[in-house]
Nucleic acid binder design. Structure first.
Lengths: 150, 150
DNA sequence: AAATAATAAATGTATATACAAATAATGTTA
DNA sequence: TAACATTATTTGTATATACATTTATTATTT
């Protein structure tokens, strides 16, 4: 039985709203712990995986660093440094934008596409099994999350 | 309208389960961004705040580092270093345990209690307003989160 | 009692988040 | 066109996460 009160050994919360914040923080930790162990053998972090997915979503079109930043799950993350890491690994190509030399064109590489293809299957399967809800409940969860952010 | 598809500009997801994982990661980022700005003026991080709350929950009884670790929202966090930071700020007292010299007794200080008292009111208010759900919905969200972790 | 195992905490290193500031290029305006 | 503002990216610094390793102490076994 996975009630949050037991997980962190706290008897009660001020109100259901304060409980929900703690519950979300704890659930996030549950998620990323599973994700990390999944990504570990591939020498890539969940954040780097996410950047690769954003790049592939562009269908070969170059993307700027700020556009990546925009689409990231964590808006405060540092796309510039993540791109640098992925470039070192040969998973993307980064070059100066010809029309605006402030910008940088980023494109996923063949190696990046292959890694993504291989990893994606495992991630999608993991995501399905790690959420112990039926179809109706998970749809409800999505609606509540969308709504709670206002 | 805060649908996750718009927030990260992704048209569709593999299935509602994969959407829920992304939704949770994104919602977490939404939460901690608000929390960080709230904590900033007090020179304390959400994680440090959480440790202080755990310590106060002991009602003056000394707690060991591993017991703090256990109750933390993020189990992979490093309680040892957080305790060190809080000690430097004078928010807790850390001393060698007399009965077992491997252990360390940690107790929240008067200064820590005062900070907690002041901060807590603001955190609780913030937590209530940042979740745009009614009482019934937030209870539902808590149930779904508890259940999804299995 | 000596050797070994187990436990508690601290430390090392890599990655990422958070946010401010610096740098460089482009746009705008007087 | 020179001065100024804006935009894109990088860099600096502090905090935290993730996980392996080390150190110190206590418990167990032979």
């Amino acid at each position: 039985m996975g009630k949050i009160e037991d997980a962190i050994r706290q008897k009660e919360f001020k109100d259901p709203y304060n409980k929900a914040v703690v519950n979300l923080l704890y659930t996030h930790s549950y998620l990323v712990t599973i994700q990390n162990s999944l990504f570990k053998p591939y020498d890539i972090s969940p954040e780097q995986y996410n950047v690769l997915r954003i790049l592939r979503g562009q269908n070969g079109q170059p993307t700027t660093v700020s556009s990546i930043q925009d689409r990231m799950l964590n808006k405060m993350s540092n796309a510039s440094r993540l791109v640098e890491k992925l470039k070192t690994k040969g998973l993307l190509i980064r070059e100066e934008c010809p029309t605006d030399r402030r910008q940088v064109d980023v494109v996923i590489s063949e190696k990046g596409l292959n890694l993504l293809k291989e990893l994606e299957v495992k991630v999608e399967e993991s995501n399905r099994t790690l959420i112990h809800l039926n179809e109706e409940e998970v749809a409800q969860l999505n609606d509540l999350l969308d709504k709670m952010r206002g």
